[in-house]
């Protein structure tokens, strides 16, 4: 497992040596900051509902940017030939990659802790719902990153990987919207896997074990698929 750390450290360096992490974090903060300010000015309350919901929507666009290059670049430059002729397991490799994007994401979220701090200064925010919303955000981020990582394993092109993960996340998002239109057993399934509906629970302060399990399962499934794709490509 210490080679997970090796992969993780290298990936963190490349995130912060390149402008990518800074750009993604900045864009995220500018837009969420804007919604936070307008939200407070309009409602004059200490609720952060709109802000968190907006964050999740924004992640559909930003997470693919973070993850699209994770697996494509090494393949394109032939570095995978070094990695997989070394004593390195595919699982260690994928987990290392996942963790690096996940940590960048957590750092990004940590900057938004300033929002509750502002609320604290002017009033008394409901910390229960804020904390559970953050837990939800962390879990949703895990799902999105694993989807992005999976997309990145499919191709050698960053752009295509970005588009695929963006597309997959959009499909998951559409599930929420299509629910009200469709009928029958499909809707039942859709209700079960509707990531965004579970998130409303989290932001209302409900730590629903179903939501937690669904998020974690999604993450594991996509990470597993990623390891399968990498393995299969070599065995072909």
């Amino acid at each position: 497992m210490n080679k997970t750390l090796t992969i993780f450290k290298r990936e963190m360096k490349s995130y912060f040596y390149s402008p990518l992490a800074y750009v993604v974090i900045s864009v995220f903060l500018v837009i969420t900051g804007y919604t936070f300010i307008t939200n407070i000015l309009f409602t004059k309350t200490t609720f952060m509902h709109g802000v968190f919901e907006n964050m999740v929507t924004l992640l559909i666009f930003l997470i693919p940017l973070l993850t699209m290059g994770l697996l494509t670049e090494e393949r394109k430059q032939g570095i995978d030939q070094l990695l997989f002729t070394s004593p390195l397991g595919v699982i260690e490799f994928v987990v290392g990659k996942f963790l690096s994007a996940f940590v960048v994401y957590i750092v990004m979220l940590m900057f938004t802790f300033s929002f509750p701090a502002v609320l604290e200064y002017f009033g008394t925010p409901d910390y229960g719902s804020i904390i559970s919303a953050y837990i939800g955000l962390i879990l949703v981020g895990g799902v999105f990153i694993s989807v992005g990582l999976f997309a990145s394993s499919l191709t050698e092109s960053q752009v295509i990987a970005g588009l695929i993960s963006f597309g997959l996340l959009l499909v998951l998002w559409l599930v929420t919207l299509m629910k009200s239109v469709l009928t029958g057993t499909i809707v039942k399934i859709m209700h079960k896997i509707d990531l965004f509906a579970y998130f409303s629970d989290f932001q209302n302060g409900i730590l629903d074990s179903r939501g937690i399990i669904v998020y974690i399962s999604f993450t594991f499934v996509f990470l597993f698929l990623t390891t399968r794709v990498i393995d299969r490509r070599r065995w072909r």
Binding site: R10, S14, Y17, Q77, I79, Q81, L82
Partner: peptide, 13 residues
């Protein structure tokens, strides 16, 4: 020790 056709190096290191 294996050296592939294109050196497997990270350009940003």
């Amino acid at each position: 020790g294996y050296v592939p056709e294109h050196p497997p190096v990270y350009r940003d290191m």
